[in-house]
Design a protein around this nucleic acid. Sequence first.
RNA 1: CGCGGGGUAGAGCAGCCAGGUAGCUCGUCGGGCUCAUAACCCGGAGGUCACAGGUUCAAGUCCUGUCCCCGCAACCA
Length: 655
Amino acid sequence: MSKPKFYLTTAIAYTSRIPHIGNTYEAVVSDAIARFKRMTGYDVFFLTGTDEHGQKIQQQAIADGLTPKQHVDKIAGEIRRIWDFMNVSYDKFIRTTDKEHMETVQKIFKKLYEQGDIYKSSYEGWYCTPCESFYTETQLAEGKCPDCGSEVQKASEEAYFLKLSNYADQLVKHIEENPNFIWPEARKNEMINNFIKPGLQDLCVSRTSFNWGVPVSFDDKHVVYVWLDALSNYITALGYNPDGQSGELYKKYWPADVHIIGKDIVRFHTIYWPIILMALGEELPKQVFGHPWLLQGKDKMSKSKGNVIYAEDLVNYFGLDAVRYYLLKEMPFAQDGNLTYEHMIGKINSDLANNLGNLVNRTVTMVDKYFGGIVAEPDVKEPIDEELINLALETPDRVEEKMNEYRVADALDEVITLLKRSNKYIDETQPWILAKDDAGKARLKTVLYNLLESIRIASVLLLPFIPDTAVEIQRQINATKTDWNSIKSFDGIIAGSKVNEAKPMFARIDEVKKLAEIHAALELNTPKEEPKVEEKKEEKVEVKPEEDGLITIDDFAKVQLKVATVLECEKVEKSDKLLKLQLLVGEEKRQVVSGIAKTYKPEDLIGKHVILVANLKPVKLRGIESNGMILAASDDETLTLLTPMAEIKSGTDVS
RNA sequence: CGCGGGGUAGAGCAGCCAGGUAGCUCGUCGGGCUCAUAACCCGGAGGUCACAGGUUCAAGUCCUGUCCCCGCAACCA
């Protein structure tokens, strides 16, 4: 009998930085879905991988003194290692630098060109000669190059474009006729109203300004630009071939059942990607699921807040399945989720230690204590049993229902409900009293059997989410039937079998102690590299800390701190937080932009002394050059500038 | 008038589309139990459902207006 197929993909991770926990979430949630589908009888193909081309990567490799290939090999290896470490059960890990992928992308490009969907043109832009880069109007900083500040000239760059307008009507029709195509549904209107209705602009699909990419086969000045390259991974991974000779995997698995992606790239997956496929004459994916973000507390993760969290660190603190559980259980379906250590500890204690762990532990202990570890045949039944049994038998369907809509957190909640009901059942039946006489023991056999069986069902349901733990539970209760069909009836535990020793799986966490431990670890690692959030944003170079987190006086001496006097100060237009300050540092004048406008009014600062980091690399903030930074202390509520306690000359060194 | 999401108990959320007893998880307080990881079970307290109008026998839910918060566009020191 052949199984129905199920093809799912994650977005491919950009290889500019090590992924943080928010990026890792996508891989874990996809994994849970893949495992669940496999368990419920699907022939699953689960694809993930890395996006390795582009100017950013080329530049960063140069900065690190590596070739682009060395750089992406390093990061892609790291990403793959983290996915493995998190127990992500992908079937294939594709890299956009794979030979097969690149060749197929070239063929796709050529085919689209030959049939007129891609055409050669040029776009108007601003060219910076020193940087050899093109910028759009909006990228410019005060009319100058955002990178080096040089004058730019209006120029046009040759480029290939994908004609989107050819397919716009067809796309709208498809979106409207397939209400599940964009998921959750709210995102559908966003796409239609914001992007399709106003009219689609043709998409630029090649670049000449850098060469780390897939070369256009018939025009070697050009490389294929990001989206055509990256999106194609979903079909190149299966051996798609535009000449009609696609591989077996493609024939079997395409179209994708779901692309699981971050909400920020919904647009590319629901507009550009379908159009590319329509142009190729291929089927469209059945669904695109844009999941929300995982935030650190209320904030986005950022290095300046010192709040970047990595999956591996969390696993070190809490254990693998605890982290998987938290990610899956605490991410809402459509809104951004918040991650705090406090919350995480609370969740692990209540759901995993108290509810799940303790239930298994007390049940197995009782089997051991009252029956020498041997599972007895159920004997005396009572009406109260029905409630537990019915719930246990309904739960698989409920979980499946939720999973079909990718409401992973809700699916887990159904399992928790069963666990809670089981704990309640113990109180209702009072096994410790039953154990006192023979009549009670006859009843007790049934009670313990029902508990073990409920636990068995729960453990099977937990396999996709916390696989290691689920297996450990099955080991402890000695369950041999652990497949999906076996939980459709309430008789999978075999009478006469012997349970194994009860071992706590999740220790209760002492919040105060654990937080202290985490903070101590954070202190040591503070200036860790900043990972990027999925967008390809700016990069910063970091000084590597010593192993123990301590620096020497020489390290500190690298930072030149000076007293400076505020000469002028004004608000940066259209900015909430930024002030532009003109400072006097000894004889020298400096312009610094600082994010303190919420606390200080420009006129309050004039004439004040501040502490300036004088040898900070200049940056542009809102297009205004900032040469240094002024020191301020801040917590959640208060921000205050640091200032010398006594009158002292501007330009004085601080050490 | 840029686009979008949101404001419901101390925290996090559901309920709104198809008006009819304000619900869940955590926390908190009290009690019970002793098989178990001081876990488990029961009960209580805690809400002007952002605000103001309107429709209705009836509004968290529908309509109108206002305020506030958060993303992104477009700036983290």
